[in-house]
Design a protein around this nucleic acid. Structure first.
Lengths: 212, 212, 212, 212
DNA sequence: CATGAATGAGTATTCATTCAT
DNA sequence: GATGAATGAATACTCATTCAT
C-alpha cells in the first residue's frame, strides 16, 4: 500500500506535481485524468485530493512549478555570459528543451522536450472560467518576461545592447517567437525547419540589438 | 429560401460554422458544447448533426473556414503593395484582427478579435488522438506559411527583399511572432504592450530583410 | 424526384415491404434504420410514413409477408409429392432457402438465404412491448405449423404416414429443428455441418414416421 | 464484507451479472437499459462501468455466465445415468428450465424459465458488428455441442448408442430442437404443446439411436 | 403526394470528487 | 492518512417521427 511520503507533506506534493507535469504537458488539461496520474504514481485517487483540493488547483501548482524552474534555468544560463557570446544554437536549445538544465536536479523528470504551448492552451481555457487563475497566470507570464527584460537591461548598462532598445518589448518578442515556433512544431513542422527559422530570426534581431 | 434548394444546405452549414467559430475560439474545443451552439443558433442539437457528423468534424470545418478566409485576407493585403510600403501598424492590424478584412463580407460575423492560438491549442489536443486531423492541419499550416513565403519570394525578384533571405524561414518567423503574441495577449498582456513589442520586432526584422 | 408508384398504393406498399424484408432479416429490427430503407428505395423517409404509420407497423407487415409467402411455398412443394418421395436434401433446401420458390415471382427479391431466426428474435423483442403484435405473431406461427400438420394429416389418410403419429407435434418438431439449425448457422457453424445434422435427424424422424 | 477485499470486486461483478441476466433474457439486448439495471441493483450507472467497460462487455459476460452454468448442469445430469434411463420428461425439464439445477446454488437467481433463444438473437445482432464477439460466441456454442457429443460418444463405447450414429450431428440436432421449441414458446405456443412435441420427437430420435 | 430539415426524447458513457472503511 | 467503490452531473450522439414547403 504505497504512500506519498507520509512524513513530508511538501515532498509528497512535489512528487505529484512532477508526475502531473508530464501528463498535462503531453496530453493537455482535459485529456489528463486524475486516475491516470494516481495510477502512474502508484497511489490512489483519493491520495491526490489530500494535497490538492481539485484538478484545477493541481494544474495551477504544476504551472507554477514549471514557470519557476524554467525561469531559474533561463536566468542561470543568461547570466553565465554576455549576449554576444550566446550562440543562437545554444539559445535555441535552452529555449526549446531542457538539456541545459542545471539548476535543479529534480528537473530530470522532464526527460523529454517540454511543450509549454500545451500549457498555455490549457491555461487559457481555464482562465476563462477561473478569474483567479487568470490573475495568477498573468502574473507568472509577466514575471517571466520581466526576468529576461532585466537581463537585457543589465547588458544595456554594460554596453552590449543598444541604449534605445526597449528591453521589455525585446523580451516579449523573443518569448513570442519561442511560443510561436512551439506551435509550429506541434503543427507538424520538422525540427530542422524550426531551428533554421529560429536562427534566421534571432540573427536579425541580434543584429539590430547588439552594439557591434 | 426554401429548404429543398441545394443552396440551403450550404448556407445552413455556413451559419453553423460561423456560430461555432465564436464558441471554439472563445472557449476552446472542450468547453464548447454542441447544445450551446445549437441553442445560440435557435435550433435543436440534432439539426447540427444533419450537417456535421461529429463535433470533431465541425471543428475541422471551422478551422478550414478560418484559415481560408484569413489567408485570402492576408494575401489580398500583401499583394496590394510592396513590403516597404507596409507600415507595421497596418501589418499588425491585419495580423491581429479582421478590421481590414475586405475580401468577404460574411466575415462580419467575426466581430471580435480572433484568437488563432486557442484554435491551435484545441487542434493540437485533437491531433494527438486523430491522425487524420493531424495530417490535415499540418497541410493547412504549411499552406499558410507558403502563401506568405511566396509573397516574399516575389518581392525578392522585384528587388525589395534581399536575395539571401530564406523566404520560408522569414514567413514562419513572422507567423510565429504573431502566434506568440496572441498567446501573450491571452496571458493578459495589454494590447498596447503587444503592439509595441510587435513594432519593435518587425522593425528589426524588416531592417535586416529589406533592400534599403 | 422518385415516387413509390403513385398510382397503386398497394404496389407501393409492397415495394417498401420487399426492400424492408432484406434489411430486417439481415440486420435485425433495431439495427435497421428507416432512413436506410428509404435511401435504398430511392425515396424520402416521409414517403414510407405515407404507407406505414410506424416502424413497428412496417415490421409487422414484413413478417406477415414473409410468413405468407413461405407458407405458400412450402405447401406447394409438399403437395407436389408424397413424403416418401421427398429427399432430405430437397427438404433441407426448401426449409433453409428459397431457391425452390415457385409460387410468387416477386419472391425473387429474396435473392439470398433467408434467416427467419433474426425475425423471430426481433419479433420476440417487440412482442414483449406490443401485445397486439404478440397476438398476431402467435396466430401466424400457429397457422404455419398447422399448414404442415395438415399436410401430414393428409398423408396419414393416404397411408404414407403412421396413424399414431401426432401431426401437429411432428410439424412443430420439424419447424423447431429448422429454427434451431438456423440459430446454429448464425452461431457460426458451417453449412455442411448443418446439412449433415439435418439429414441425420430427419432420417431418424422419417424412419419412425413413415409407413415402410 | 469490506470493500477493499479483492473478493468484493468479484462478488460485485457477479451481482451485476445475475441482475443483467434477467433483463437481457426478458427484454433482449436493445431494450435493456444500463440505467434500469443500475436502478434495480440500487446503485448508480457509474458503478456498473467500474466493473464492465461497456454494455457489450457486460452482455458478453452474461452470456458466458449462462453458458457455463447451463453446461455444468447439463453434464452433471447426463453423467448421472446412461441414456436409456433418461426419461424424456426429465430431459425436457433439464433442457427447458433450471428446476433440476444441482450444481450451483447461485442459480437460484434464475427464478424463471430461461430463454436462451433471446440470448442467441441478441448475440446474433451483436455478432454482425463485433467480430470478436462472433468468435467468442461461436466458440461457446461449439463447446456446448461438443460437450453433449462427448457424452454420446462415451455411451457408444459402452454399447448404449449405435456405433454408426454421428455423435456431433445428434448433439446438434437435439440442441436445435431445444432452441427451436424455445422459439415456439416465445411465439406463444403453450408449454403443454411444447412438451408433447418434444416427447414425440425425442422418442423417435432415441428409437433410432439407442441399441435396444 | 413527396420531400428532407428539424425535432427532442432517449442512451451509453465519462470522470472529478466524495466518503465509509 | 490512504483506499477505491460509488456517485451523478454532464455530454455527444441517434433516429423515429413530424410538418412546412
Amino acid at each position: 500500500m504505497p504512500k506519498v511520503f507520509p512524513e513530508y507533506r511538501e515532498e509528497a506534493k512535489n512528487r505529484i506535481i512532477k508526475q502531473s507535469v508530464k501528463f498535462f504537458s503531453e496530453k493537455g488539461y482535459y485529456k489528463t485524468k486524475m486516475a491516470e496520474i494516481a495510477e502512474c504514481l502508484g497511489v490512489s485517487k483519493g491520495a491526490i485530493y489530500q494535497y490538492f483540493k481539485s484538478k484545477e488547483e493541481l494544474f495551477l501548482e504544476v504551472i507554477k512549478f514549471y514557470v519557476e524552474y524554467t525561469q531559474k534555468d533561463l536566468v542561470a544560463f543568461l547570466n553565465s555570459r554576455p549576449p554576444k557570446d550566446i550562440s543562437t544554437d545554444e539559445f535555441f536549445d535552452i529555449m526549446f528543451n531542457i538539456e541545459h538544465s542545471t539548476s535543479f536536479e529534480n528537473f530530470k523528470i522532464l526527460d523529454k522536450l517540454f511543450p509549454p504551448l500545451d500549457f498555455k492552451l490549457a491555461m487559457s481555457e481555464l482562465m476563462t472560467s477561473n478569474p483567479l487563475m487568470k490573475e495568477e497566470m498573468t502574473k507568472y507570464y509577466k514575471d517571466s518576461i520581466k526576468l529576461m527584460a532585466d537581463y537585457f537591461e543589465n547588458y544595456k548598462i554594460n554596453g552590449f545592447i543598444k541604449k534605445d532598445i526597449d528591453s521589455f518589448s525585446l523580451s516579449m518578442g523573443i518569448t513570442s517567437i519561442q511560443d510561436g515556433l512551439m506551435a509550429a512544431m506541434q503543427m507538424g513542422i520538422e525540427i530542422s525547419e524550426i531551428r533554421k527559422s529560429w536562427k534566421e530570426i534571432t540573427k536579425m534581431i541580434l543584429k539590430s540589438t547588439l552594439v557591434e
